[in-house]
């Protein structure tokens, strides 16, 4: 899709700029954009290296197991009648990896969980209820520390780059509650 959108954006912008007399701005803007990518990447580089290292310490301890135990009641509510132990384990691990911001670990775990769930899926062409809930949860950004946003804010010279953490928690929780409730309602209506 980007093979069409990307050139379209550029062509339309350039033509519009010629007619509206903004072509000088556009020309300078290209180099400004490149500069912001370099700035952002440098900040991201620092943030991601730091965060990856810290989270690897967590992964090397029994921290993740402990967290898996803590979210048991939540798992029961989200995935009632999920009897497959392997799927259960993979789903909880994926959710915790998401919360800890380990995107690189979360996705492979999530795909594994999907494969395990698919083995028991009656209709192989269609998501079942567990899969639906699981995917909706993965589209909710359940991240404890929104590292990327903090890196972006730092690179743009924010006075309080991490000042958004608490509001992000509230917005995430509201979004997740809406997603889960909608899924539950859709599931009950489908029966």
């Amino acid at each position: 899709m980007l093979n069409i959108l990307w050139p379209a954006f550029i062509i339309i912008s350039f033509i519009y700029a010629f007619f509206s007399g903004n072509i000088e701005n556009v020309s300078n803007g290209i180099f400004d954009s490149l500069e912001s990518v370099v700035n952002l990447s440098l900040t991201l580089l620092g943030t991601l290296c730091m965060w990856n290292g810290i989270m690897e310490i967590a992964m090397n301890t029994s921290f993740v197991e402990k967290l898996t135990n803590i979210i048991k009641p939540l798992m029961k509510f989200l995935f009632p009648n999920l009897n497959n132990k392997k799927a259960y384990q993979e789903i909880s691990m994926n959710m915790i990896a998401n919360v800890l911001g380990l995107g690189n670990a979360a996705t492979p775990l999530g795909l594994k969980a999907m494969k395990t769930l698919q083995e028991e899926n009656e209709n192989k062409d269609k998501v079942n209820n567990h899969m639906a809930m699981f995917i909706v949860l993965n589209t909710a950004s359940l991240q404890l520390i929104p590292t990327n946003v903090i890196a972006i804010r730092t690179s743009l010279g924010s006075q309080m780059p991490s000042g958004i953490i608490f509001p992000v928690w509230i917005a995430t929780i509201i979004a997740a509650i809406v997603g889960v409730t909608a899924t539950k309602i859709f599931i009950s209506k489908n029966k």
């Binding site: 954006f9 339309i12 912008s13 700029a17 556009v26 400004d32 954009s33």
Partner: peptide, 9 residues
């Protein structure tokens, strides 16, 4: 670059 030209134009 694409977003940049969309804005500056």
């Amino acid at each position: 670059v694409a977003v940049g030209v969309l804005r500056t134009s």
